[in-house]
Write a protein that binds this DNA or RNA. Structure first.
Lengths: 249, 249
DNA sequence: AAATATATTGCAATTTTTTGCAGTTTTTTT
DNA sequence: AAAAAAACTGCAAAAAATTGCAATATATTT
């Protein structure tokens, strides 16, 4: 039997029986216990069952598998996320916009962090839902297909009733002339509303977004509380921004 | 170079250049054009780039991969979804609860269907967001970790402002004595609100949920507009339900 | 603490997947 | 319509992954 078919049967058996042992599966599927142990290890990693001593138990299955490997400039985003985490404290109310840098931040939050996080992005919410102690609140509204976020007056109105301690904005365009800019008009409106509803705003920008001007204004240079990039603060590329008064990490 | 690493570079090159040719990648990565063509074909299928004649172009990347293969009783859910689709018409306002049967329904909706669909489930919303012509509205609120749905007074209040033509409810327990029942109190409350906000309610139940009574009432037998199972309507297992007056497909 | 059960690691044999190529088909360009 | 470019299929060789086993380590039971 093919590995894939066998693993399917492993998952089915665990769904039916709630708990199975490696030796039971080994006999049932006619392969060695070591093969079953490897299967269980791999399926646990994929979130399809939970490995326990001697076998596996049923789990809330993760229907979606997070293709993190293919995120463009993944290492840079990990670096930015780690810098951003230093600003997060227990008890905070946080707003998060969308994008893959924020997704990485959501993934890397400390597993004991107790905070409330508002977001309008489906992938961010999916990721935050896996966090054991963060309370995730999704801002409802019409889903914009390409960006997987909600937009519209419902979102902006909802945001006007919140005051967040901290807000993380994923950045698409960042330039000296224009400050933070973005691509979609409706997303720009929502990001502006997020910014207005927060005490402190943090802009997450990979270096390839620097010196890029897009079509819609989000925030001027002077209004930036903190900006985080993957570059070292002493990097010459950042010097004009530092000289212009931007608080950079 | 390993296949996985090579494909990572393919995705990166497409992200950088927006458009690349097979011959360009073949030279750059030092493999044959046929290998690149196979890579591009596979990555397009995964939603990480778009294959075009002569090469590939950048696309909005699907960060999440949908593990459909491992859905328990997948074929039965496909059957139920196909039955449910016959009730759907252009111009309808629809409400969808959560669960893997509804997920299958969301996936199999006709690609030219023009409807508005409300949902409180993150996976359902992710799936619907891929539909080219369906308008998806997410009902915001606090995310419940295990079930990946929103619950709370916000959701119920929002639902009270809607009248949907049709509502699809995923079923966990279905019995003669108790009708439709569920596991979580908060989810049961929301499902009740969904039912109240809809002209017609359709209950999607795999056969393994029949003759199961769970802790929280959702809907009595008499109140069921339509129930869909994977069984043939003439199946003896369904006879008591038919005799009790349940409208079954 | 000792015995038993389970898990992990390294390795060789086996199985499966991937690759490059040739021939053919399809699509695009001239 | 014809020529050129690109795509697809089948196949054999090469590469990679998987499997079962033995030895060792760790966890659980007695």
């Amino acid at each position: 039997m093919k590995k894939k078919d066998r693993q399917q049967k492993v998952v089915d058996e665990v769904s039916i029986n709630r708990q199975v042992s490696s030796s039971f599966l080994s006999e049932k599927l006619n392969v060695s216990e070591d093969t079953i142990r490897r299967d269980i290890k791999e399926l646990d990693k994929k979130g399809l069952l939970t490995k326990v001593h001697g076998g596996a138990i049923s789990t809330m299955q993760k229907l979606y598998h997070y293709n993190e490997d293919v995120i463009y400039k993944r290492e840079e985003k990990v670096l930015i996320a780690k810098k951003a985490i230093t600003l997060v404290e227990d008890g905070m109310v946080i707003i998060m916009s969308g994008g893959t840098t924020n997704l990485m931040l959501a993934k890397l939050l400390p597993k004991n962090l107790k905070a409330t996080i508002y977001t309008y992005s489906l992938p961010i919410a999916m990721q935050l839902a896996e966090h054991p102690t963060v309370e995730t609140i999704f801002i409802g509204g019409r889903i914009q297909r390409n960006s997987m976020v909600t937009t519209g007056i419902d979102v902006i109105q909802y945001l006007s009733n919140i005051t967040a301690n901290l807000c993380f904005i994923g950045v698409s365009g960042f330039s000296l002339e224009q400050g933070i800019t973005g691509e979609g008009y409706e997303v720009a409106l929502v990001k502006k509303a997020m910014i207005s509803s927060s005490e402190r705003n943090v802009y997450l920008s990979t270096s390839n977004k620097l010196n890029i001007r897009l079509n819609y204004d989000i925030c001027s240079l002077k209004e930036i509380d903190i900006a985080i990039t993957d570059l070292d603060v002493q990097d010459p590329i950042l010097k004009p921004y530092v000289d212009a008064g931007v608080m950079l990490i």
